[in-house]
């Protein structure tokens, strides 16, 4: 049964990859409709990726739109050596790093989880897919917010590696293609990013207390 399920899932994945390749080819031939489909297919991932990096919805939307506009403008340069999404991540990452550097020069911005100030008072931000957390998950939710806040405090060149690896779950090889850096540099940046993140996180939250009381470590690993 599992064999058939796996096979079906693989076939589904292959069909998806083939469909994307066709859409890219049609878009490269100048078909706007095909490019529109590519935008639809990648919009959520690119928007979320940018939102986590820049931490501001409007800015993330602008950057995501700019990512696709630039992708369209330089579509003839996409050779298909890597996945289309990898190429989009590369454009998005460059835009995000520029935006982060500009922001760091300007000063701090509002967190994506912070309440929105309106004429009618304060409104909670609505996040797609977010469900009210039960009490036991309160710490985790707080932890997530602190982790993302800490990520945004990292140096601009360390942020994308961490987000691409841990959130987007790209392989080292794919990250190397996205950021155009050697594999060793990816690992080195990831290591430094995680080390710095842990330090920042420990300063923001009582993680040690949580680890000693609530959290079960993955050690010893299950073989």
């Amino acid at each position: 049964m599992n064999f058939f399920l796996d096979r079906a899932s693989l076939e589904n994945k292959d069909a998806k990859v083939a469909k994307m390749a066709t859409l890219v080819q049609r878009a490269q031939a100048g078909e706007r409709e095909a490019f529109g489909d590519l935008v639809e297919a990648h919009a959520d991932r690119i928007y979320t990726y940018l939102l986590h990096l820049v931490g501001d919805r409007e800015e993330a939307e602008d950057l995501a739109q700019e990512t696709f506009v630039r992708a369209w403008e330089s579509l003839d340069r996409f050779r298909g050596g890597a996945a289309f999404s990898t190429w989009l991540y590369r454009i998005a990452t460059n835009l995000a790093i520029d935006a982060i550097r500009r922001r760091q020069r300007r000063g701090p911005i509002q967190s994506i989880d912070a309440p929105v100030q309106t004429d009618d008072g304060e409104l909670d931000r609505q996040v797609a897919g977010q469900v009210p957390a039960p009490d036991e998950d309160l710490f985790r939710q707080e932890l997530q917010r602190a982790v993302w806040e800490s990520i945004r405090e990292l140096p601009p060149k360390l942020q994308p590696v961490l987000v691409l690896y841990d959130f987007e779950q790209l392989s080292y090889e794919d990250i190397s293609r996205v950021l155009l850096i050697p594999l060793g540099t990816v690992k080195s940046r990831l290591f430094h990013a995680r080390q710095q993140l842990k330090r920042l996180l420990s300063a923001k939250m009582p993680v040690d207390e949580y680890l000693s009381t609530i959290r079960q470590s993955s050690w010893p690993p299950v073989r």
Binding site: D44, Y47, Q65, R140, W148, S217
Partner: peptide, 29 residues
């Protein structure tokens, strides 16, 4: 170190994916 790494990794992986704003693709086009 391991416990903290697990915690961070898990927190990142459990973060929800946001939906792009409505009308995003037409706006790009």
């Amino acid at each position: 170190e391991l416990a903290l790494s697990d915690l961070v990794r898990e927190a990142l992986r459990q973060t929800p994916t946001y939906r792009a704003p409505a009308g995003f693709a037409p706006s790009v086009m």
